[in-house]
Amino acid sequence: MSEQTTIPFNITSFAGETADALVKVLDSGWVTTGPQTAAFEQDFADYLGAAHVIAVASCTTALELCLRALDLPPGSAVLTPSLTFCGAINAILHAGHRPVLVDIDERTLVPSPETVAAAAARVRPAAMIVQNQGGYPVDVPALTEAAGLDRTRVIEDAAHGPGAGRDGRPVGADSFAACFSFYATKNMPIGEGGAIATSDPELNDRVRAMRLHGMSKDSWKRYLPGGNWRYDVKRAGLKANMTDIQAAIGRAQLGVLPGWQRQRAELVAGYDERLAGTPGLVLPQRELDGVQHAWHLYQVRVPDRDAIIEELAAAGVSTSVHFIPAHQMTLYREVLGAEECATVPVTDRVGEELLSLPLYPGLSADAQDRVVSALAKALRARS
């Protein structure tokens, strides 16, 4: 199968005005954190309906900054799903804390109040990270109550979240801390970058300083006409700021995001219709009352997953897996210990079956038909 006929797992799209926006930033003479970053923060806050947005270098640094801003005692227990990207676990470790695993509901692929309560019963959690796996918006208040935590101790990993919502409110609109990703494969790709949406003014002030070493003023404020070079550092921070180059791309991408989300929903409906009733296949959880799925991923469950991936690749269809459960990786097995790793049996079972199909704006009907045909053929051979 030639490269020209291969259906990629993802193609990164950019808004038509992206190039012009970049040229304007380059011509301005200011490319790091500055006026475009501030404008992007306001634009994204308006889109979410959030009180505050802080633009940062990545979702991973967003998670770590929020954990550090909580001022938890060193080594505190932080609840987290194991079915997550390794960066989310690293954020807990880099902040000086201890991950405690939460199992998932096999239909939604996110923790349920029951699995959170079971994990909280093993430890006394100081905080929790909840994740919108694949774009499915978790019920944050229900999980917060199940953990026995105050909302100011719950951080949302909304890397897959732009476009998702519950009860008519976008993910991040009312959050204490919701962390977004703008990585190249995400629903609103910039290439790299992240953001934190918060309703809490104190967290906003803390994280805004901490994203740039903890300095009281960034360089834009220091070098504005009439600005003063003096600054203070009151708490340790990270080098985690977004640049104006990234922010300019983000502002352009935000303008086309609603249209892209509609395309994703149409593609998901197409997958559902074409794949319904395929033997051996479990389709993703459909939208429930009050739940608006972002459809960052279209995750199916299949038997003999690795062999099917190879067969699809031979047919010119690229796929991916989200994710290898963290506790199955060498570092985290050593950090967590065998007893902790044994607490997530549903994650272990489902993690061996998950397969992410191509899903991105611009995926043609013909290409989608090829994906469906190749997958159905592989599954029929096993029925």
Score class of each variant (00 low, 15 high):
residue 3 E to Y: 00
residue 9 F to I: 05
residue 17 E to C: 01
residue 28 S to Q: 00
residue 39 A to V: 01
residue 59 C to Y: 03
residue 64 E to Y: 08
residue 66 C to Y: 03
residue 68 R to L: 10
residue 75 G to R: 11
residue 92 I to M: 03
residue 95 A to G: 09
residue 99 P to E: 05
residue 101 L to R: 09
residue 104 I to P: 03
residue 112 S to E: 09
residue 115 T to I: 02
residue 119 A to L: 11
residue 120 A to I: 06
residue 123 V to G: 05
residue 124 R to Q: 15
residue 125 P to K: 13
residue 132 N to L: 09
residue 133 Q to G: 06
residue 134 G to D: 12
residue 136 Y to W: 15
residue 143 L to P: 13
residue 150 D to Q: 13
residue 151 R to C: 05
residue 151 R to W: 02
residue 163 G to P: 06
residue 164 A to V: 06
residue 166 R to P: 12
residue 168 G to V: 09
residue 169 R to W: 01
residue 174 D to G: 14
residue 178 A to K: 10
residue 195 A to T: 04
residue 198 T to G: 12
residue 202 E to M: 07
residue 202 E to N: 04
residue 204 N to M: 05
residue 205 D to H: 10
residue 206 R to L: 11
residue 207 V to H: 08
residue 209 A to F: 01
residue 210 M to D: 04
residue 217 K to F: 10
residue 218 D to I: 02
residue 219 S to R: 15
residue 220 W to I: 02
residue 222 R to S: 11
residue 230 R to L: 14
residue 231 Y to M: 14
residue 231 Y to F: 15
residue 238 L to P: 01
residue 243 T to H: 06
residue 243 T to V: 03
residue 243 T to C: 12
residue 243 T to M: 05
residue 246 Q to P: 01
residue 246 Q to C: 07
residue 249 I to P: 02
residue 252 A to K: 07
residue 259 G to H: 08
residue 265 A to K: 15
residue 272 D to T: 04
residue 278 T to H: 08
residue 279 P to V: 04
residue 280 G to L: 06
residue 285 Q to C: 14
residue 289 D to L: 05
residue 292 Q to M: 05
residue 296 H to Q: 12
residue 298 Y to I: 02
residue 300 V to D: 00
residue 306 D to Y: 00
residue 306 D to F: 01
residue 309 I to P: 00
residue 310 E to H: 08
residue 311 E to N: 02
residue 314 A to R: 13
residue 325 P to V: 10
residue 328 Q to P: 00
residue 332 Y to A: 06
residue 341 C to A: 14
residue 345 P to E: 07
residue 346 V to W: 03
residue 347 T to C: 13
residue 347 T to Q: 14
residue 354 L to W: 01
residue 363 L to A: 12
residue 366 D to V: 09
residue 369 D to E: 14
residue 372 V to P: 08
residue 375 L to A: 09
residue 383 S to D: 13
